[in-house]
Design a protein around this nucleic acid. Structure first.
Length: 550
RNA sequence: GGGCUUGUAGCUCAGCGGACAGAGCACUGGCCUCCGGAGCCAGGGGUCGGGGGUUCAAAUCCCCCCAAGCCCGCCA
């Protein structure tokens, strides 16, 4: 609340004092040290370059203007090289708490999106094997982002893009077919680059059960049957895992459908007419090198097969032109990073502003087992399944861990540690605060307090340092929500919640909520209830539950 | 060889142009007759990978080097 509000006030002041300045880029930050106030700005340091005046002098001018104009500050001070430090009036904090109590689960919402339509595409794992913990990271991240975007006024659609055609699917079908033969006692030669996982046997079993004459059929059609069955079966499995992880999608988009409707051909034709497509060595190429890519890329192989890239051009054309989304956010594995320039290039070739697609590259999750780092690989069957991790560690803890790092930082997941230390996991620290508050409220009711009166409590009785500190933390919630959405960084909220929970525990250990005068008890109950609401809202945005008891 | 990402406390990571660099874990020592001890308080710990540069100001921006991961296919 602070930053957003103060930034606005400062902009007004500057445009009044220095109308010649059109726009400036300054920071409104929470300072590192308590002596520097509740909030601080470097605006005069930024202005010095433009105004050619001493920053302290500029700061004094702004300070005087502020003192005349607004009264939410108890004190304004010019310090250091020319920082302006602000101390917020207690009355403003009480007002904020009252808003929390009134708005409840809506508290913290800010309208940044203004109804803009966003398509967020994530997970999109090939239906060639079960979800592993790497996919889990993308799932947790994408789902949290979707929640945050919705909370901040965007119109969000969550989509899973299914690669239901192409080479990998063919290999999947062939893998199942071979295993079926093996199960029937035939000797087979199972290639190294086929899918090695045990689940292939299960599907092969099912294929044999369903198609009794499978092995008598012509090989190509038998493999096709296996492929379709495998895809359906694996996709069902994926959906179930995601649901168990608390992640649901609004839409499952089939790559194959882009061909069934002729859209791929249509879009390539558009590019061809614009002169961005040429033929060489029997293949069709897109001139992505004109758009900053290292080289041109094939859209149709000399075999006549379309590439994944061709599908993707059509898919994104469809997102923006047919479905008219304002913004597309794609969460990809970091190993796809080389792919970004060609996609953006294709969009520009189609006259679509490439800024409208934001690709977030989620770094790999490595699994540490016995001190050895292993990378996830579906084909080699080297992975820990997401469902296994959930079973052993729990949904909340897994999501919280995945959301406690920025997406571009690789994550070494020490499975043993996560299982063993589940009780010490940071998520419990936050949830514990929530449960504790619920318990206090229950206790208060036993003592006869009417919790419906909280919003009418005399909040000015909250004067202790720890109380004011907690009030400030509560009021900072929407600043953190704003940051999280602007930077697409849910982990910011994770940090904030840990900080908020810490302030609560600190307060709880020093003071008794119930037992002072009736008025003070009500005020304190109001304070912790406000804290509980914010914890709940924050955890909700991360997709983590807020238990009343644990 | 080229590209992308990362290198901050023993470990895992925040901070990414501003004021003496932060948190958790781990370690050491304290704290419930009392609303949940899955908690609190106190303590030690850092040439911000290295070297140059830009700036009033650099962990943060630029260049070079070193290290790790990923990519460089008519695979997805």
């Amino acid at each position: 609340m602070f930053k957003r509000k103060i930034r606005g006030i400062l902009r007004e002041i500057v445009s009044e004092l220095y109308p010649e300045i059109e726009s400036i880029n300054f920071e409104v930050e929470k300072p590192k040290r308590e002596e520097w106030g509740d909030i601080s700005t470097n605006i005069s340091l930024v202005l010095q370059g433009i105004l050619k005046d001493s920053p302290r002098k500029i700061a004094e001018t702004i300070k005087r203007a502020l003192e005349e104009k607004v009264d939410i500050f108890a004190k304004i001070e010019v310090a250091g090289a020319g920082f302006i430090n602000f101390w917020i009036k207690d009355s403003f904090l009480y007002e904020q708490l009252r808003r929390v109590l009134l708005e409840g689960k809506h508290y913290g919402r800010i309208n940044i999106g203004e109804g803009r339509r966003v398509l967020i595409e994530f997970v999109s794992a090939n239906p060639t094997g079960p979800l592993h913990i790497g996919h889990g990271r993308g799932a947790a991240y994408g789902d949290a982002l979707a929640r945050i975007l919705t909370f901040t006024g965007f119109d969000v659609t969550k989509e899973y893009y299914i690669n239901d055609r192409g080479t990998q699917m063919d290999i999947l079908g062939a893998s199942v077919y071979l295993r079926a033969k093996e199960l029937k006692g035939k000797s087979i030669n199972f290639p190294e680059d086929y899918y090695q996982g045990d689940y292939i046997y299960d599907i092969a079993q099912e294929a044999l059960r369903r198609y009794e004459d499978l092995l008598e059929r012509e090989e190509a059609s038998a493999i096709a049957l296996c492929r379709d069955l495998a895809m359906k079966s694996i996709l069902e499995d994926i959906k179930r895992d995601l649901k168990d992880f608390g992640v649901t999608f609004d839409s499952w988009y089939s790559e194959q459908s882009l061909y069934d409707t002729g859209l791929v051909q249509e879009v390539i034709q558009i590019l061809r007419e614009k002169g961005y497509i040429y033929e060489e060595d029997g293949a069709l190429w897109f001139k992505s090198s004109l758009f900053g890519d290292e080289k041109d890329r094939v859209v149709r192989k000399s075999s006549g097969e379309w590439t994944y890239f061709a599908s993707d051009i059509a898919y994104h054309y469809e997102k923006f032109i047919k479905r008219r989304y304002d913004l597309a956010i794609n969460l990809w594995g970091a190993d796809h990073h080389g792919y970004v320039p060609r996609l953006k290039g294709a969009l520009r070739a189609l006259n679509i502003d490439s800024e409208r697609v934001i690709v977030l590259l989620i770094q790999m999750v490595n699994l540490i087992e016995g001190g050895q780092i292993k990378s996830m690989s579906t084909r080699k069957a080297e992975y820990v399944e997401l469902k296994e991790l959930i079973r052993e560690v729990g949904v909340d803890a897994v999501r919280f861990i995945f959301l406690s790092r920025s997406e571009d930082s690789p994550l070494d997941f020490d499975v043993e540690l996560a299982k063993k230390q589940s009780a010490e996991n940071p998520v419990y620290y936050v949830q514990y605060a929530h449960a504790r508050i619920c318990s206090v409220k229950e206790k208060a009711q036993e003592f006869g307090y009417d919790l419906n009166l909280l919003s009418k409590a005399e909040l000015s009785l909250l004067k202790e340092k720890e109380e004011l500190n907690l009030l400030k933390k509560i009021a900072e919630f929407s600043d953190n929500v704003e940051f999280a959405v602007m930077k697409l960084a849910p982990y910011k909220l994770t940090y904030y919640l840990l900080d908020l929970a810490s302030s609560f525990h600190e307060y709880y250990n020093r003071f008794r909520i119930i037992g002072e005068t009736q008025e003070l008890t009500l005020a304190r109950l109001a304070l912790v209830e406000g804290c509980r609401i914010v914890i709940h809202n924050g955890l909700f945005l991360l997709g983590v539950s807020s238990p009343n008891k644990m």
